[in-house]
Design a protein around this nucleic acid. Structure first.
Lengths: 248, 248
DNA sequence: CGCGTCTCTTGATCTGCATCAAAGCAGAAT
DNA sequence: ATTCTGCTTTGATGCAGATCAAGAGACGCG
């Protein structure tokens, strides 16, 4: 329930910066009103855990700003990141009680949440919300399976290039300036988090980033600010189709 | 369209051996009738490709008997299996036109298919089918993410043990004889297919299976027939929680 | 300012798995 | 039987990435 000190001032759904991809994308005015009733915003500081794997999760929602990660852990401490949540991404498992993974804010984070019980009730009466959720879940499944190829078959250098191209692409679509010029963005992850995502060690991540820089595939300003002079070159390094097209 | 020579004699939905997990699990009599109208069965021989990645896929359906795999490939030939379809598993992407991965029959295979267009129409009017699909998709997502941990962080020996325990568990629940005694089953995959699933080479798979046999974790009769004397030992080898519980 | 903490880089060495190579084995065809 | 073919095992060697170790920047704080 929203008796949490992380709950912050409400916003209007129409103002919601992520409305174009989120649950309410196709809602009519009266449905938006209903959603308003069960909606609240929460904010988290970098490093805070949003939910622990196995905990009861009483909401679903989307990331408004900031970055969160989904992580799985083994008892001996080995961890694997299984999802990266950027603004507009959805979190939560309608119809499931517990969280399956740790959800951690890696930067300061604002989330737009819906209380789960009433949300599920709305799903029943509002079929296009169900359909939207199925669509989003299929997207996530595609992304997870694409990542299985990265984890299982790509070299360290290809892994890094794959991650950079995903972040770059997401960043570009958010900014909606799909120019063909150089892409510029800030890495939202530490070397360690990248290693967790890629199934590598942080040393290997650092070395491969240095190598990509040395070879002119990317430029670095400081440790996080990345410039990609030629995106198709990066895609090539990632071992993906060179045509840079979004996957169907 | 079902003008394929692989189409085989129709069966009644009530006889469908997989009805308990399939789409029609909660359907009323009249809904089952409607499903009957758009249903057909297809059979494939071991090695046949069911659909190619990118091809138009005009059906959704479930595996009735046999095994199929979902595989992703890079241009240079490296491949990664991203899903293993056992009897009762669902295939297809409602709302999507193309197949995202190659679907290949690794044994002789029978599938229960529904024509996609009318099936999607039914989804709109029959909400519990949508809900069932969302549930199944979430299950697949969980499985894919669990597999990301296997691919990213486990050793070769742990990978093999993980695969064996998954197959053993699925086999046991199908037979519904959840005795605590030794588990016995046949490996439905070649060493090469196992390697593809696990992100290893077939030589490493073979070596690790030999090692598990040498260490008494499993017994082998021939190349495929496996006996697991102590399932919790296998789970331990897989690096999972020892309590053998299904994940929530 | 110096100090501690965090993140990142780089070097040296080790090792698990890939790669290359050669047989063994079982079922099918001749 | 014999040969073929597909699957599997086992051995020898090499290498990508892990591990161990040492600093280098950047930043906040007393």
């Amino acid at each position: 329930m929203p008796n949490d000190n992380a709950v912050i001032a409400p916003q209007d759904c129409a103002d919601c910066p992520i409305r174009h991809r989120a649950v309410c994308a196709r809602c009519e005015a009266d449905e938006l009103d209903a959603l308003e009733q069960i909606k609240y915003y929460r904010s988290f500081e970098a490093g805070q855990t949003v939910v622990w794997a196995g905990d009861r999760m009483d909401f679903v929602g989307s990331v408004v700003s900031g970055i969160a990660t989904l992580t799985q852990a083994m008892e001996d401490g080995r961890t694997q990141m299984v999802g990266l949540l950027l603004p507009s991404d959805f979190v939560g498992r309608p119809g499931r009680d517990g969280a399956a993974y740790d959800v951690v804010a890696t930067t300061d984070l604002v989330m737009c949440c819906f209380r789960k019980q009433p949300f599920e009730k709305m799903m029943v009466s509002t079929p296009h919300i169900s359909h939207r959720l199925l669509e989003m879940t299929l997207d996530e499944l595609d992304a997870a399976r694409e990542w299985m190829l990265v984890l299982g078959r790509k070299t360290a250098r290809e892994k890094i290039a794959s991650l950079l191209s995903i972040v770059a692409r997401r960043d570009a679509t958010l900014k909606l300036d799909t120019v063909d010029g150089p892409l510029v963005f800030d890495l939202p992850l530490t070397r360690e988090a990248m290693a967790d995502y890629l199934g590598l060690t942080l040393e290997t991540v650092s070395r491969q980033i240095s190598a990509l820089k040395r070879d002119g595939v990317i430029h670095l300003e400081g440790k996080r600010h990345v410039t990609v002079p030629d995106f198709s070159r990066l895609m090539e390094e990632a071992g993906d189709d060179s045509d840079g097209g979004m996957l169907a």
